[in-house]
């Protein structure tokens, strides 16, 4: 079992109560692995304590990247949130802690 941190890097941005987390493969060859394992549903489950709304995933194959948009993820937004990390800057690290099953490479196509 590996974590995403070994396969990809990530950055979080905030707009109002919506957070976006990019996920960028270090090696373009691992992009299919990200496509297969890092689905919107898995991200929503992984961050279930944080994201109260929908999670959308956008695919950017030319960049070897995925972009996740997390609605109602910032306790109302940076201006009114009581959270220590009101911007959600640290959420990229939460995403990178997600586990990726070994041997996923062989089934990267489906």
């Amino acid at each position: 079992m590996r974590t995403l941190r070994e396969l990809a890097h990530s950055r979080t941005g905030d707009k109002g109560d919506t957070s976006n987390i990019s996920l960028i493969a270090y090696d373009a060859a691992d992009y299919p692995l990200l496509l297969r394992w890092v689905t919107a549903a898995r991200v929503k489950a992984h961050l279930s304590e944080i994201v109260k709304g929908d999670v959308m995933r956008y695919e950017l194959p030319r960049l070897g990247a995925l972009n996740f948009v997390l609605e109602h993820a910032l306790s109302g937004g940076v201006t009114r949130s009581l959270a220590l990390d009101a911007h959600g800057k640290s959420l990229s690290s939460a995403l990178l802690s997600m586990a990726i099953p070994d041997g996923g490479e062989e089934t990267g196509d489906d």
Binding site: K15, T18, S22, I24
Partner: peptide, 15 residues
């Protein structure tokens, strides 16, 4: 490429 790709997607929703 990595610093630029991260910033390209920063605060972007629908690309």
């Amino acid at each position: 490429v990595r610093t630029c790709t991260e910033q390209l997607l920063y605060e972007v929703h629908d690309p």
